[in-house]
Amino acid sequence: MIQLKENIINFEVVVHAEKNFSQKTICTFLEAFSTINSKDAQCIINLAKTEYINSSALGMLVNLKQYLGNNQSAIRFVNANSYIKKLFKSANLDSAFPIEYQY
C-alpha cells in the first residue's frame, strides 16, 4: 500500500512507495495525487522500501512531472537503492529526476 502524507502549508506531498512500484500500485498512486489542488505542490517520493519499478510506473512518473509543470523541483526522489538509481540512469531519467539520499 502506498502511504501519502500531505503538508498543505508547504504544498508538499510525501509518498512512501512500496516494495514493488508497478501497475498494481499506479491506480492508488494516481488517486492520491488527484487530491492535489495546486500545481505548486512539491511531490517527494520516498523509495526506501522500493526494490522494483516497472516501465508503466516510470511512464506515470514522467506524466506526473508534466502535470506538475516540468519544473526541476516538482518531484523529488529520496532514499533509492543502487538498482533504482541504475534503472533511472539506463532510462535516461536520472537528469530529469535527481535522487537525493535522505529526507
Rank of each mutant, 00 (worst) to 15 (best):
Q23N: 02
Q72P: 11
Y52Q: 04
G69M: 00
S55M: 08
S22T: 14
S22H: 10
L64R: 06
S38R: 00
I53R: 08
N81F: 09
G69E: 01
Y52D: 03
G59L: 07
L30I: 12
C27M: 10
I53S: 07
L61T: 01
L4M: 13
V78C: 12
V62Q: 12
T28M: 04
K39M: 07
L64Y: 09
L4H: 04
E6R: 08
A48H: 15
S38Q: 02
Q3I: 13
F77H: 06
Y67D: 02
S73Q: 07
N46P: 03
C43D: 01
Q66R: 10
R76I: 12
I75H: 05
E100Y: 14
F97E: 06
Y67S: 09
K65T: 02
L58N: 14
C43W: 03
F97A: 11
D40W: 00
E18W: 04
N92M: 12
M1Q: 00
F29K: 03
E51A: 02
G69H: 01
F77V: 00
N70W: 01
A57L: 03
N20S: 14
S34A: 07
N71T: 07
Q66K: 12
A41G: 02
N37A: 10
I99R: 09
A91R: 05
N37S: 14
N81D: 12
I2M: 02
M60R: 08
S95V: 14
T50P: 05
E18N: 11
A32C: 07
A80P: 04
E31K: 05
I75A: 08
D94V: 00
A17R: 06
L47I: 05
Y101P: 11
V14D: 05
D40E: 06
F11D: 08
I44P: 01
L47H: 14
S56F: 11
L87F: 05
A80H: 07
S82G: 00
E6L: 07
V78R: 06
S34Q: 14
T50N: 02
I36N: 05
L58C: 10
K85D: 08
N46G: 13
T25K: 02
D94N: 15
C43F: 15
E6F: 01
V62N: 10
E12S: 09
F77R: 05
K19C: 15
L64C: 12
L64S: 15
S82C: 00
Y101S: 15
L68Q: 11
V13N: 03
A32E: 04
F11H: 06
K89W: 01
I9T: 06
T35N: 09
E51R: 08
F11A: 02
N20P: 13
A96P: 01
V78Q: 08
Q66W: 00
T25V: 04
I44C: 14
I75G: 06
Q102P: 04
Y103E: 15
S73I: 10
I45C: 12
